[in-house]
Computed example of a mutant assay.
Amino acid sequence: MTTTTDTTVLAGEQVNAAGALLALLTSHPNLPAPNIRLNPMQVPGTYEWTWGLHVALHDRLDHFEQWRTALGLAPSAVDQGHRGNTAWLTVAGAYSGVPIELHGFYRLGPDAER
């Protein structure tokens, strides 16, 4: 006899992240529109996972900075990376008790130092 475990994720498990998304967009309606998706994320400072917000902005670092400031995420917490001619800034925190990751992607010029 084979036993399987049902690993179906229920939509209701995303309610807190969806509520935080609604609060975020309602609180900051005049910020540039990012790409947002709900993702499983580690709760900061724990080994637990929950649904969180992945917020991405492309080609405009000023838009990343506007969002970072609005979310109250420290400039000193921003990490950077690059691969090929694509670079990114990333900072993580929480909003309305939900984990959030803010990403800003941009292209490096042909003469940019790496």
Score class of each variant (00 low, 15 high):
Gly52Phe: 01
Arg37Leu: 07
Gln80Cys: 06
Leu24Ser: 01
Leu21Asn: 06
His58Trp: 11
Leu73Asp: 05
Ala56Leu: 04
Ala74Asn: 15
Leu22His: 12
Gly72Leu: 07
Ala92Asn: 13
Val9Tyr: 09
Thr3Met: 13
Glu113Ile: 11
Thr5Glu: 14
Ala74Lys: 12
Ala70Val: 00
Ala11Ile: 08
Ser96Pro: 01
His58Met: 07
Gly104Val: 00
Asn39Tyr: 07
Thr86Phe: 05
Ala18Asp: 14
His54Tyr: 09
Asn39Ile: 03
Thr3Gly: 09
Ser76Leu: 10
Gly93Thr: 04
Ile100Val: 15
Thr3Arg: 14
Ala77Ile: 06
Glu48Trp: 06
Val91Ala: 06
His28Pro: 00
Gly12Ile: 08
Ala87Pro: 07
Gly97Trp: 04
Gly93Pro: 00
Val43Trp: 00
Glu113Asn: 10
Thr8Ser: 15
Ala11Glu: 15
His28Gln: 04
Pro34Ser: 02
Ala11Gln: 14
Leu73Phe: 06
Asp111Met: 09
Val15Asn: 12
Val55Ala: 03
Ile36Ala: 03
Gly84Lys: 00
Met1Cys: 11
Met41Ser: 01
Arg37Thr: 11
Arg37Ala: 09
Val15Lys: 12
Ala11Phe: 09
Trp51Gln: 11
Glu101Lys: 14
Pro34Thr: 04
Ser76Glu: 15
Thr69Leu: 07
Pro75Ile: 07
Tyr47Leu: 11
Trp88Pro: 02
Ala94Val: 05
Thr50Trp: 00
Thr86Asn: 13
Gln80Ala: 14
Tyr47Asp: 07
Leu24Asp: 01
Trp67Thr: 00
His28Arg: 01
Ala11His: 13
Leu38Ala: 10
Ser76Met: 09
Glu101Ala: 07
Gly45Asp: 07
Glu65Val: 03
Asn30Ile: 02
Leu38Phe: 12
Glu65Ser: 15
Val91Glu: 06
His82Ser: 12
Gly19Pro: 01
Leu89Gly: 03
Thr46Met: 09
Thr26Lys: 14
Ala56Gln: 15
Gln80Val: 10
Gln80His: 15
Gly19Arg: 14
Thr2Ala: 13
Thr3Trp: 12
Asn35Thr: 12
His58Val: 05
Ala11Asn: 14
Leu10Val: 09
Trp88Met: 05
Arg83Asn: 08
Gly81Phe: 00
Ala70Trp: 02
Gly52Thr: 01
Thr8Phe: 10
Met41Asn: 02
Gln14Met: 15
Thr7Tyr: 13
Ala87Gln: 09
Gly72Gln: 05
Asp111Thr: 13
Leu61Asp: 13
Asp59Gln: 12
Leu24Val: 01
Asp6His: 08
Asn85Pro: 05
Gly45Leu: 07
Ala33Cys: 03
Leu71Arg: 02
Ala11Leu: 15
Phe64Asp: 08
Val43Pro: 05
Asp6Ser: 10
Leu89Asn: 14
Ala87Asn: 06
Ala23Leu: 13
Ala56Asp: 10
Gly81Trp: 01
Glu48Leu: 14
Gly109Thr: 11
Leu73Arg: 03
Ser27Arg: 11
Ser27Met: 07
His58Asp: 11
Pro110Gly: 09
Pro75Lys: 10
Ala18His: 12
Asp59Phe: 10
Leu53Asn: 02
Met1Gln: 13
Asp62Gln: 12
Leu89Arg: 15
Tyr95Asp: 04
Val78Gln: 03
Trp51Phe: 11
Leu73Trp: 03
Asn30Pro: 00
Leu25Tyr: 13
Pro44Tyr: 05
Asp111Lys: 09
